[in-house]
């Protein structure tokens, strides 16, 4: 079973993402902020990480960079964020993201993308 880590500080968004991923047959892990995410990534080595950017303490960019450089560059990272400016996109890809998606998102598109990246 493929593993997905979801990182977001909004409980309601977490709830919907968790449902979606479980529904599509993933083993789901959850982190409510950046530092928690750093720990879980190292412990569980997920296949895909769905990552918010604006979070308390450690932000999404830092988490992404950490994963790609320090843990395993094969872990796929999808940014899922409310930041929708061109410069934000660029910065996201700069730190090594595999895909950048803005909120609000289409559930179908997200699931498709995650499936594609996981396999």
């Amino acid at each position: 079973m493929k593993k997905v880590l979801i990182v977001d500080d909004e409980p309601n968004i977490l709830m919907s993402l968790e449902f979606l991923m479980k529904k599509n047959g993933y083993k789901v892990f959850i982190a409510r902020d950046g530092s928690e995410a750093l720990g879980t990534v190292q412990d569980e080595l997920p296949d895909v990480v769905i990552l918010d950017i604006m979070m308390p303490e450690v932000d999404g960019y830092e988490v992404c960079e950490f994963i790609k450089k320090k843990v395993d560059a094969n872990i796929k990272v999808v940014f899922l964020t409310a930041k929708g400016k061109e410069s934000d996109f660029e910065k996201g890809y700069e730190v090594g993201a595999d895909f950048y998606m803005t909120k609000p998102f289409s559930t179908k598109k997200l699931v498709d993308k995650v499936n594609e990246l996981a396999n």
């Binding site: 909004e10 968004i13 409310a82 609000p104 998102f105 559930t107």
Partner: peptide, 9 residues
Amino acid sequence: RTPITSIRA
């Protein structure tokens, strides 16, 4: 965006 995201999802 945050509430809208939840609502839409």
